[in-house]
Nucleic acid binder design. Structure first.
Lengths: 115, 115
DNA sequence: CTCGTATCTGGAGCGCGCTCCAGGTCAAGA
DNA sequence: TCTTGACCTGGAGCGCGCTCCAGATACGAG
């Protein structure tokens, strides 16, 4: 199975090497497999997971939130706990969208005023 | 004209006194009128403006962004500049919404999977 | 084998957005 | 008048999310 160097993984994901190591330290990804000499070897699965993390980071979730997310998806929580957790997260994202929409309404109002 | 103490303004806006002073230092609000003794006297207009700032902060805009917003709305920029600026801001908010939607789609997928 | 580059680790540093603190001032009630 | 509490200022401190650094190690090219 082909693996990727940190540089390649960083390039493919758009996340810096330092940040990849930081995410790993924080338990958001990995632990990434190592070569005999200790160098990280990223797999395509790792990249996919990094993509998920990035997606949530871009949506504004904090590191702690993501740690919870990772824990839920990995650990042996009963399915209903997972669903409840995921719905909670979804609701908080909806609230963020609502806040954004309020701000956009204000902007639209100002735009209309100056147009 | 009736004015409000810092405590009341904080209470009415949901923004802490420290943060109100911080916003004022950063030029996001005010400058707030002072009493003879130097105490701040907030007006209803001030509260309205604080509400705007809060709205944008909740939408995730940074202090620097808001300073730009304030500058545009206050200063003598030509209307077309203002409109261009406001449209730019709106576009970046739309991108945030898009990022949130992507994250929500991932969540929905997981929710469906565990349901 | 040697060189040069990539990577490793632990820890320090940084920008943001507050938040808190010390030490002093103002003002309303007893 | 005296007390008490809200408020003032300047500046330090803090949590987050990286980002950078030093010094050591791995490893592919020549």
């Amino acid at each position: 199975m082909t693996t990727l160097t940190p540089a390649t993984a960083a390039d493919r994901t758009g996340v810096s090497i330092d940040t990849l190591r930081y995410y790993e330290r924080e338990g958001l990804i990995g632990p990434i497999r190592r070569s005999a000499g200790g160098r990280r070897q990223y797999t395509e699965d790792d990249l996919f997971w990094i993509g998920l993390v990035t997606c949530f980071r871009e949506a504004g979730l904090g590191i702690t939130d993501l740690r919870g997310f990772v824990a839920i998806l990995r650990a042996e929580h009963p399915p209903q706990d997972r669903v409840a957790f995921l719905r909670e997260r979804r609701a908080s994202l909806e609230q963020r969208v609502a806040a954004l929409c309020r701000a956009m309404e204000v902007l639209d109002e100002k735009i209309a005023y100056y147009s």
